[in-house]
């Protein structure tokens, strides 16, 4: 239990640092942007290169994503989510837009920046799932995905990492759309439950 509390404390502190950095970015402090970039660029780059499957595109996107952070830092609302979630959402949306059509937003539907930030949950900041990243979480996520069935893991990876729509997944896997939806729903819920259980242990 003490270990868990220590992790939670560390995660909350990490998000606090991120928030302070964003506040400095709002004030146009380049050093703050550089620090935030150093904290998140590898993760963001890893995600976008997985989605667009092109190093030059991923590099271009990485720069674009942090330019958006620089320009829109003042739109981040601390009480509505973590800096990590905000940045990852921007990154994934931009990468999928790039993948699907020359940066024109063509996502089917989903959690946009605004909708994500509109999830007004005052308990969010106290929930380690919503705070930040850590090496412990990296391992936990890998472990969590490993607990899913291969079918569940496949549809989630095709959707999240490759930006495919459920209809495209249905076509590619030659399974009914309903099955794609069910696998995805159950997989995500199971992953959430796994993470919660691990944290609460």
């Amino acid at each position: 239990m003490l270990v868990v509390l220590a992790i939670i404390k560390a995660l909350l502190e990490r998000n606090e640092v991120d928030v302070r950095l964003l506040e400095r970015i709002v004030k146009q402090e380049q050093a703050a942007l550089a620090e935030l970039y150093d904290r998140y660029a590898p993760l963001v780059y890893t995600l976008v290169i997985r989605i667009v499957k092109s190093a030059p595109d991923a590099e271009d996107l990485l720069q674009e994503i942090f330019l958006q952070v620089w320009n829109k830092a003042n739109t981040f609302v601390q009480t509505k989510g973590s800096v990590y979630t905000w940045i990852v959402t921007i990154a994934r949306n931009k990468a999928i837009d790039r993948l699907r059509g020359a940066d024109k937003p063509q996502r089917d539907a989903g959690v946009g920046d605004e909708m994500l930030l509109s999830l007004r949950d005052e308990t969010a900041m106290a929930n380690p799932l919503m705070t930040t990243i850590s090496s412990e979480y990296e391992k936990m996520m890998r472990d969590g995905l490993a607990t899913l069935s291969a079918e569940q893991r496949t549809v989630i990876e095709m959707s999240y990492y490759e930006g495919l729509t459920q209809a495209q997944i249905s076509d590619q896997l030659n399974i009914p759309l309903g099955t794609v939806k069910t696998r995805m729903r159950n997989g995500i819920i199971k992953l959430r439950d796994f993470l919660k259980e691990r944290i609460e242990k």
């Binding site: 993760l43 890893t46 989510g81 979630t85 999830l119 969010a124 919503m130 990243i133 990296e138 995500i188």
Partner: peptide, 24 residues
């Protein structure tokens, strides 16, 4: 909120790659 953040943690499961210094 937990579901949204669970999904947002998915990048953590990927093998980490380092962007070129030129981007920075």
């Amino acid at each position: 909120a937990e579901l949204v953040n669970t999904v947002s943690l998915l990048p953590l499961a990927l093998e980490r790659k380092t962007p070129p210094e030129s981007v920075r």
